[in-house]
Design a protein around this nucleic acid. Structure first.
Lengths: 129, 129
DNA sequence: CTCAACCTTCCCCTACACTGGAATGTCAAG
DNA sequence: CTTGACATTCCAGTGTAGGGGAAGGTTGAG
């Protein structure tokens, strides 16, 4: 499929696909005889994986690391295992940070929800925040 | 108080205070006779509000909205509650996406740890995609 | 008087993740 | 044969949240 179709399938723009290729998140796409990039379903799956990672707040560099681990299936297992351990630890760290932030925001939200008119005095600037 | 003192009191840099003034989060500060910005405790309270909002993951544009509601004499609490709800939903989404990715990476890690030749089979490692 | 520690404006720089647009090429339909 | 929708490369800009540093003014201490 051509870039437009692949982009639409992954919910992205063609610009983004070229950008991802330049950034090393996608391997250089095969070209048709006319020079157009030619994508397969695998590429769309990869794009969807990237999209999920982005939605989770991962940076492209982090997604690139995960993908390159996946791509080096023939690399020495011990090395890959180390890298995967690091990725796992990093993910755990990010999850715990996000969960801490969530509980802070949940607390703020609960306080805001229980607010009386008095606590909504404009002078107070929403003092619970 | 001068900008350095106000910045220190709010846990920010002087650069950040000038940036916030340029960005419309702070009103243009009064100036002393020497041209230096002159801050009062109110400004520090406002800065602390901004800092708490940032810590809760709000963008400066969102904080600016809250503050400008408050500045026009309107109690922004309902608006803040909305923002916090959205923030909470967004955090929940991010956390669940991260946990999904974590389980993918954990699966890869477990496979790599099993140490068979099969675990180094690119086809198998790619199978989650 | 000089020096350090402040302050001022000004402009540019950073990283991230794209996005826009120009100039050009390709291709199927009418 | 032309039109429109695709595609290509390349360069440049956007938005976010500031940071770096120059060139100069102000102030208190020694």
């Amino acid at each position: 499929m051509r870039i437009g179709e692949a982009a639409a399938a992954a919910g992205m723009t063609t610009k983004t696909l070229r950008f991802y290729e330049d950034s090393g998140l996608l391997p250089a796409a095969k070209r048709s005889s006319n020079g157009y990039r030619d994508y397969h379903d695998d590429s769309v799956a990869r794009l969807e994986f990237i999209r999920r990672g982005r939605a989770a707040g991962l940076a492209l560099t982090q997604i690139r690391e995960i993908l390159s681990l996946r791509d080096t299936g023939e690399a020495p297992c011990a090395h890959v295992q180390d890298l995967l351990s690091n990725q796992l630890a990093e993910l755990d760290h990010q999850i715990s940070e996000l969960m801490a932030l969530r509980s802070i925001v949940a607390g703020l939200h609960a306080t805001a929800a229980s607010g009386t008119d008095a606590s909504c005095d404009p002078e107070q600037i929403c003092s619970y925040l």
